[in-house]
């Protein structure tokens, strides 16, 4: 579904993403893990075609992202790390706006998101101005907005930051169902425990891949009990080296 070869991104002389080689399969939940500044957002943005790589190639469904941005964008939904719906618009108006810029009809969009809205318990919040929603509901609405066009590919950049643990679990339940329905979900987080929900995770540090694989297998091979310990072990090893 997604493949990158020697993906690099520099900001000036600073390397934010360093030589990433990825292969992400269809219907997989793929997690990018890493501390703040590790390069997760930069990677996600490049995969979506929002940022051009300094070097390297990205193909999504066999299409080069840099060369065919429009076709790729049509097939993906993206929820940015920073809350970026319009606060002065009502929930429903935000949904209708994103429906409109994806060029699809509101009737079609409604069938795409109806079950999600009731599952998220968003119905009664749609009439409110988005700025007045509690944080958890803002995040839910953002996710629904990213899914109005029923994309096969979903990018979620730290969707659970600033959300209480119960809401986080609910959020991950929805992410699971998306994958179950055949969508590929690429998610970033700095909560190590969330790695357990992913089919595969990639732990990033300073723009580089540290380890990549199934969380269970990673824990076994590194002989640790939790992902948190794995992360500390990796970070420690890195610090010892430098």
């Amino acid at each position: 579904m997604i493949e990158t070869i020697n993906l690099n991104r520099k900001f000036g002389s600073f390397t934010a993403v360093d030589n990433l080689n990825l292969k992400i399969d269809k219907a997989e939940i793929f997690g990018f893990l890493g501390a703040n500044g590790a390069g997760k957002t930069t990677t996600l943005r490049m995969l979506c075609g929002l940022l051009t790589p300094t070097s390297g190639t990205i193909t999504v469904n066999g299409l080069n992202v840099v060369k065919n941005p429009e076709a790729v964008k049509r097939s993906l939904g993206y929820m940015s790390q920073k809350f970026s719906l319009y606060g002065d618009l009502r929930g429903i108006e935000n949904l209708q706006f994103y429906t409109g810029i994806y060029g699809i009809s509101w009737t079609a969009a409604k069938t795409n998101i109806k079950s999600l809205i009731s599952q998220f318990d968003l119905d009664k919040y749609l009439k409110l101005k988005t700025s007045e929603l509690p944080m958890g509901y803002k995040q839910r609405l953002s996710l629904v907005c990213a899914l109005v066009h029923n994309p096969p590919l979903v990018f979620l950049d730290e969707p659970t930051s600033g959300v209480d643990p119960k809401a986080r679990r609910e959020f991950w339940q929805v992410i699971n169902e998306l994958a179950y329905r055949g969508k590929t979900v690429i998610v970033s987080t700095h909560f190590m425990d969330e790695a357990e929900y992913c089919n595969r995770v990639l732990i990033m540090q300073a723009g580089r891949e540290e380890v990549c694989g199934n969380p269970l297998q990673l824990k076994q091979s590194h002989r640790v009990a939790t992902m948190q310990q794995l992360f500390l072990k990796i970070a420690g090893a890195d610090n010892a080296q430098s």
Binding site: L50, L85, Y86, Y98
Partner: peptide
């Protein structure tokens, strides 16, 4: 400034539109 443009740019909408 608000970052809302990022959410628009990720859609297939063109500059002209």
């Amino acid at each position: 400034e608000l970052g809302t443009l990022e959410q628009i740019l990720v859609s297939p909408v063109s500059a002209m539109e």
